[in-house]
C-alpha cells in the first residue's frame, strides 16, 4: 500500500533522510522507531505530503503522491502535538473536519468511547493535554480510511483511554487497515506492533518483527533490544 523509494530530505544543510526505502504491502501495525532526530516525523510528513522530498518517490496504492492531494482521502492522521484553532469548541472542530472531509458515521461511537462528550462545548484552547489528545484521536479515527498514521498516540492519555486506544487499534487492524505508529513508549509498541521499522541517521536500520529483532540483537527484552540497536551502531 505504501512504497517509499530512495527518499532523501535536506532542510537547508541539515540532512534528515538519506535514501529511505520502505515497502508496506499488507495491512498490519507498523511502528517507526528511532532516536530523536532520526527522521521519523519527517518520513511521516513526507507520506502525508506536508514535507516535500528532496529526492525519491512515495507511492500510495501505486500512485505517486507528488503534487497530488486527494490520496489523503485514504489516510487518517493523528498529529504529534494536538494543537487546534483555540477559538473553536470541540463540537465545532469535529463538525468542521467532518464538513471538510465528508461525513463520518463513527464520530458518536468514538466520542462515547473516549468520553469526549463531557467537554464537547468547551473551547479547544481551554482543554487539558489529555482532553486534547482524546479529541485528536476522535478526529483521526472518525473517517475509517484504509491507512492510519499515528504520531505518538499515547501522549497524555489516562490508563483507561490507553486501553481503549489499544483495543481500537487492534480492531482497526482486524478490519484490514494499515496502521503506522511512532512512539517512545516501548511497552506500548511491543504490545501492539507487528513490524518494526528502525530509523537511524536518515536510513532504515532495521526492518522486521519483534522476535527477529530480539534474535538479531540477542536480547530478550524489547526495550534493551532497541537500545542495543542504538549502541551497536554508535560503537
Amino acid at each position: 500500500m505504501i512504497k517509499v523509494q530512495d527518499l532523501h530530505k535536506k532542510f537547508q544543510k541539515n540532512i534528515v533522510l538519506s535514501g529511505v526505502n520502505l515497502e508496506l504491502k499488507e495491512s498490519g501495525i507498523y511502528s517507526i522507531l528511532g532516536p530523536n532526530g532520526s527522521g521519523k516525523t519527517t518520513l511521516i510528513k513526507s507520506i502525508l505530503g506536508m514535507v516535500l522530498p528532496t529526492k525519491g518517490s512515495i507511492k500510495i496504492n501505486d500512485k505517486s503522491i507528488k503534487a497530488a492531494w486527494d490520496y489523503r482521502k485514504q489516510i487518517d492522521y493523528l498529529p504529534q502535538i494536538a494543537n487546534f484553532p483555540s477559538n473553536l469548541k470541540v463540537k465545532e472542530l469535529i463538525s468542521m473536519i467532518k464538513d471538510l472531509r465528508g461525513n463520518s458515521k463513527r464520530d458518536k461511537e468514538l466520542i462515547n468511547l473516549f468520553g469526549v462528550e463531557k467537554f464537547l462545548d468547551k473551547k479547544v484552547g481551554t482543554l487539558s493535554g489529555g482532553m486534547k489528545q482524546k479529541t485528536n484521536i476522535v478526529l483521526a479515527f472518525m473517517f475509517d480510511s484504509p491507512i492510519l498514521i499515528l504520531d505518538e498516540p499515547t501522549t497524555g492519555l489516562d490508563p483507561v483511554a490507553l486501553i481503549h486506544l489499544k483495543e481500537l487499534i487492534q480492531k482497526e487492524k482486524e478490519r484490514g487497515k494499515l496502521i503506522l505508529i511512532t512512539s517512545h513508549i516501548m511497552s506500548f509498541v511491543e504490545e501492539i506492533t507487528d513490524e518494526i521499522v528502525f530509523l537511524l541517521e536518515g536510513n532504515v536500520h532495521f526492518e522486521g518483527n519483534i522476535s527477529e529483532l530480539k534474535k538479531q540483537t540477542s536480547e530478550q527484552n524489547f526495550e534493551r533490544a532497541i537500545a542495543s540497536l542504538l549502541i551497536s551502531n554508535h560503537v
Partner: peptide
C-alpha cells in the same frame, strides 16, 4: 497563530 490549524488542514485531503 493559525499554524496549528494549517497543519491540521495540510493532513486533510485538501489542496495546499
Amino acid at each position: 497563530n493559525s499554524k496549528e490549524f494549517t497543519e491540521l488542514l495540510l493532513a486533510q485531503p485538501i489542496k495546499r
